[in-house]
Design a binder for these strands. Structure first.
Length: 354
DNA sequence: AACTCGGGGGA
DNA sequence: TCCCCAGAGTT
């Protein structure tokens, strides 16, 4: 039997041996058995987000909301404020809603079946599999971006891993190779995906299972996986109003659905035309005290680009406040969830009040 | 199946 | 610049 064939059979063992030596120190991996709530919070935070970005948020989160109960009864604004800067804010809202359901329906204990977990908001097939395998020791697959990439290379899968056909094929393959304990194996694959089998230039020279890897043997490690490109972000022009009264700024709470839901912003008009956004801002909020913008910034989201400009505006005589329109001092607005680039504008605008 | 939803880090 | 990342929900 040739070495490569033998390695193909043994790659799971080789991977597990490698990862046990690696012993990564992560805040959500501190003890055995794992705290299911910690696993849950970390998996939600890690969706589409790098480990290094998550670490400080995870520690702050656990400090503020140590248990499912604490999260369930927290103010939504504090939940969003704690998540501010991490992105994909529906994750935070869904996490709290799910915590409320776990509290009321399951007595504060995260359920241990795939169907019950996937019925909770924010928990899909990947996260359910991660919780079941890592926190509860069940033999369940958890197919994330790392696993799609690694299996595409290991088994020379040329299907597009972003499409359901490719994902189905790889999920089937993972199911066939999944050992016990699956949690250790799933974590080992994620470690390999972050440390070695990285997207652009995989470090095959350091890889413990390169001899079992079809892509490496065939010299295709840089061309796999096949993945569709994302389309270019759409560009918008955003005019922001700085309206002051009694050393406070007027601020607006965004709708509870859609982009940056329920987060606060300076009153703004967004449009595909720069001129129209500024024109409409003055129509709606009043006469400009200076026709020139006093602050500009371009912010790139994953699917939109906002070209922002801020204007000092003399307030109209009548501004009808409601729960979504309030005055905040620069001290006060550091404690509310600020919408994306508005956090940057808020930090800058503090000096106007001095 | 295609689209929305954030932000930051690396080459 | 461009690309990617421990995905889920909606249409």
């Amino acid at each position: 039997m040739s070495k490569s064939i033998k390695s193909k059979e043994n790659w799971v063992e080789l991977l597990l041996a490698w990862s046990s030596c690696l012993d990564r120190e992560l805040p959500w991996r501190e003890r055995y058995p794992r705290n299911p709530y910690y696993v849950w919070v970390s998996e939600i935070m890690l969706q589409q987000t790098r480990t290094e970005a998550v670490k400080p948020y995870f520690n702050t989160w656990i400090h503020k909301f140590p248990t499912v109960h604490d999260l369930a009864y927290a103010e939504e604004s504090e939940v969003l404020h704690t998540w501010q800067g991490l992105g994909y804010y529906n994750r935070a809202r869904n996490l709290q809603r799910a915590a409320q359901e776990v509290e009321s329906k399951y007595g504060g204990n995260l359920p241990e079946t795939r169907s019950e977990l996937e019925s909770l908001p924010g928990i899909g097939s990947y996260t359910a599999g991660a919780i079941l395998s890592i926190a509860y020791g069940q033999r369940e697959v958890a197919v994330d971006g790392n696993i799609l990439r690694i299996y595409s290379r290991l088994y020379n899968i040329e299907e597009d891993i972003m499409k359901s056909k490719g994902k189905r094929k790889i999920t089937q393959l993972v199911e066939e190779t999944l050992p016990i304990p699956a949690g250790i194996f799933n974590e080992a694959l994620m470690d390999l995906g972050q440390e070695i089998c990285i997207p652009k230039y995989p470090k095959c020279g350091e890889c413990p299972i390169s001899m079992a890897c079809d892509a490496y043997v065939l010299g295709k490690e840089k061309t796999l996986p096949i993945k569709t490109k994302k389309k270019a972000p759409k560009e918008y022009y955003v005019a922001c109003a700085l309206i002051m009264k009694d050393n406070k700024f007027l601020m607006h709470k965004r709708a509870d659905k859609g982009m940056l839901a329920s987060m606060w912003e300076f009153p703004m008009i967004i449009d595909e035309s720069a001129d129209k956004s500024v024109h409409d801002l003055f129509i709606l909020w009043g006469e400009e005290s200076n026709v020139d913008s006093i602050w500009t910034y371009s912010h790139t989201f994953s699917h939109q680009i906002w070209h922002m400009s801020a204007y000092l505006i003399k307030q109209k005589n009548q501004i009808v406040l409601d729960k979504n329109l309030k005055w905040f001092s620069s001290e006060e607005y550091m404690h509310i969830p600020l919408a994306g680039p508005h956090a940057r504008l808020a930090a800058w605008a503090k000096k106007i009040l001095k």
